[in-house]
């Protein structure tokens, strides 16, 4: 069968009523190897996983691979899904594990910061950092700032980046993340904090330089 035949066959045979079913009904059907039900679950969740991949891995190719691997893993693991967490949380768990594997292959540090970070005692920096919170440049129309945010998040070690994205961007609670990543709640909180400090340091340095340049004009 050709690739295009399979896609056409798939699109024509999907019962439209599946789109109306609740997630737990689809899960039960999919556990019994109802393929159409599983594919409906894929349709409902694929954008979340693809976007998570873009944020964690930084490029479309790896995000596409992550999406595919996550749903293939989910298909095999679904009979063991007990419903103790939301289905999407369970998917995020599979996706983050796959993302860590990709990061390891690419030798991206998972827990070690490349540069000295603030929580190692640079209290001086906090106390000399400018208050840029109301700076006219502190908005997202500032292209330089957007690039800096992206570059700084990318510079976080893999596990910190993952926790920061799950907590501060995706809005998962520290309890949910602790279950997802098998970490204690205090460890999750501490990593959220360290990630924020790292990013805040980067932005503070940018505004400090910017303010100095402004003063020299």
């Amino acid at each position: 069968m050709l690739h295009s035949d399979i896609i056409n066959d798939m699109q024509n045979n999907q019962p439209k009523a599946l789109a109306l079913l609740k997630e737990n009904e689809l899960i039960e059907r999919a556990k019994n190897r109802d393929h159409a039900a599983f594919e409906e679950l894929v349709k409902r969740n694929q954008a979340k996983i693809y976007n998570l991949g873009l944020k964690l891995l930084g490029n479309k190719e790896d995000a596409a691979d992550l999406l595919q691997e996550t749903f293939i893993n989910a298909y095999y693991a679904l009979p063991k899904f007990e419903g103790k967490s939301a289905f999407s949380t369970w998917l995020y768990r599979i996706a983050t594990n796959n993302a860590f594997m990709k990061m390891r292959k690419k030798k991206i540090p998972l827990v070690r910061f490349e540069t000295q970070t603030s929580d190692s005692g640079k209290l001086e920096f906090y106390h000399n950092a400018p208050d840029w919170s109301n700076d006219p440049g502190a908005h997202l129309r500032n292209q330089e700032l957007k690039l800096l945010i992206e570059k700084s998040v990318d510079a976080l070690p893999g596990k910190y980046k993952t926790i920061f994205v799950l907590h501060d961007i995706e809005g998962f609670s520290t309890e949910e993340i602790s279950k997802m990543l098998n970490l204690s709640v205090p460890a999750v909180k501490s990593r959220v904090h360290r990630s924020r400090m790292f990013l805040r340091d980067k932005l503070s340095s940018y505004f400090q330089t910017d303010l100095k340049q402004g003063a020299n004009l």
Partner: peptide
């Protein structure tokens, strides 16, 4: 100042990535 700038860092990052969806 630390509080204000940390809060702003989180807000900017959140809005930036949510817009990129």
């Amino acid at each position: 100042i630390f509080f204000r700038t940390l809060k702003k860092t989180v807000a900017l990052s959140r809005v930036y990535y949510r817009k990129k969806y």
